[in-house]
Amino acid sequence: MEAGLPHAARGRAARLGALVESREVLGWALVTPALALLLVFLAYPFLLGLWLSLTDSRIADPGRFVGLENFRYLVGDAVFRLAVFNTLLYAGVAVALKFVLGFALALLVNRQFWGKRFVRAAMLLPWIVPTSLSALVFYWIYDSQFSVLTWALRALGLVSRPINYLGDPDLARASLIAANVWRGVPFFAIGLLAGLQTVPRELYEAAQMDGAGRWAQFRFVTWPLVLPVSVVVTVFSTIMTVGDFQLIWIVTKGGPANATHLFGTLAYQRAIQGGFLGEGAAVAVFVLPVLVACVALAYRTLRRED
């Protein structure tokens, strides 16, 4: 069959074949499509975001370079300062709660019991369903008039008047943290459960023989062995919680009186709704230090483990 091909074509085919057989050429050829996507829609916007944060650009106006003007303005802006406080509070409290509750759930599910498969599948549901849709359910649960939560508290005789969950700054923050915890607990639980399952049973038996109680077993066997996966899960969750947007935007839009604005919602409000791309980009850039700190911390912790 090949004999029928013109000489030049055969030569080209052979050269092509040789190229494909080379690791270098084939390797780069195969990564090119993925790399192109990531360069155009991730690396470039990342750098463009840094650049925009140094300009006064608007939606339809490229703007001029203004140096650190946006950052100088933001540092003096009361709403932005509130957003920094909100973000730290929201992420700090929510991640801590998710970790503690997720660990407790993982320890419970790590036992053998009837219905374990069902429980393990069901407990992941909050993590699976679209957050925007579960956020709508929480919006309804926190309704100022028809809240089922208020109904339950009333039935228990704990409150006598309706509660305005989303109208009071502190209550609104607590309500959003609760909804975020609801969604994130399964992620921690399943991650930590995977970590727990790698702990060899013999280690517990050995610890028991040495007279270790339940606490000592947890402290000296379980904890050190699940530490790496704990760090990974916590870092992921911290980045996602600091960068949260949809739950807040759907339930409170950053209100009441900016009490629940995070970096993401404030950036959206300033850049997309207000049209101040430069300023919005500068708000979003503040997520970066958190990201870097998390990665560095994780790297150091995991490094020490090895």
């Binding site: 470039y44 463009l48 947007f245 993401g264 997309i272 791309l277 919005g280 979003a284």
Partner: peptide
């Protein structure tokens, strides 16, 4: 996270 990217991405 997407919050860092959505502002510049909107322009792209």
């Amino acid at each position: 996270p997407p919050v860092i990217l959505f502002v510049p991405l909107s322009r792209i």
